Amino acid sequence: MIINNLKLIREKKKISQSELAALLESSRQTINGIEKNKYNPSLQLALKIAYYLNTPLEDIFQWQ
């Protein structure tokens, strides 16, 4: 199971779900699903999230 700190990191950087979704060329619903652990992002999307949040991938997503 993958757990994530996306919501915590996103809020700390003062970025809304909609703003992050626009940067990622994704939907706000996708970001919401990832944050609620209802959806696991593809590797490509996970890497883009890490890039746009300027945060190491392993700080956002962790195996448990």
Score class of each variant (00 low, 15 high):
S16M: 05
Q44W: 10
R10Q: 01
Y39W: 12
Q44K: 13
I3G: 06
I9Q: 03
I31M: 02
K12Y: 09
N32D: 15
N32S: 14
L43C: 15
Q29H: 13
T30W: 09
T30P: 02
N5S: 05
R28M: 13
Y39K: 10
I3M: 13
L47R: 11
P41T: 08
S16E: 04
Q64D: 14
I34D: 01
K48V: 05
A22M: 12
S26C: 15
L24C: 15
S27V: 04
S27P: 12
I2C: 14
Q62I: 11
R28A: 14
E35V: 03
K7D: 03
M1N: 04
N40D: 07
T55G: 06
K36E: 15
L20Q: 00
T55E: 10
I15S: 02
A46H: 03
K7T: 06
K38A: 12
L8P: 09
N37E: 06
L23I: 10
L45H: 01
Y51Q: 09
Y39R: 10
A50F: 05
S26F: 07
K38R: 13
Y52T: 11
E58H: 13
T55Q: 04
L43F: 12
Q29T: 12
L53Y: 02
A21R: 03
I31P: 01
L6Y: 00
Q29M: 10
R10G: 03
K14H: 12
K48E: 07
L57A: 02
E25C: 15
N5D: 04
K48I: 07
I15P: 01
S16K: 08
K13C: 13
K48A: 09
N40A: 15
I15R: 03
I15Q: 02
I34N: 02
Q17P: 03
S42I: 04
P56L: 05
K12V: 08
R10T: 03
S27E: 08
L20D: 00
N40E: 14
K48T: 05
F61V: 02
S16A: 06
A50N: 04
I49W: 00
I31Y: 02
L8M: 13
N5R: 08
E19R: 14
W63V: 04
N37P: 02
T55M: 07
Y52D: 00
E25N: 15
N4M: 09
Q44N: 12
I9N: 01
L45E: 07
E58M: 09
I60R: 00
I9L: 09
K36H: 13
I31V: 11
N40H: 12
S26K: 10
S26D: 08
I2L: 13
K7P: 02
I2Y: 11
R10K: 00
L43Y: 14
I9D: 01
S26H: 09
P41A: 03
A22H: 13
T30A: 08
I49E: 00
I60F: 09
S27K: 10
Q62W: 06
S27L: 04
N4R: 02
N4G: 03
E11N: 08
E19A: 13
L47W: 08
Y51S: 08
N37S: 10
R28S: 13
L24F: 02
K14I: 03
P56M: 05
Y52I: 15
N40M: 15
A50G: 03
I15D: 00
L20E: 02
K48W: 05
S27T: 14
L6H: 01
E35H: 02
D59C: 14
Q64S: 14
K48N: 07
I34L: 06
L8V: 15
I3W: 07
A50S: 10
I9F: 09
S16Y: 03
Q62G: 08
K13S: 09
T55D: 01
G33R: 15
L53S: 01
K12M: 14
Q29E: 15
Y51P: 00
Q64V: 10
I34Y: 01
K48M: 09
L47Q: 12
Q17L: 12
N54Q: 14
E25Q: 15
L6C: 09
L43K: 11
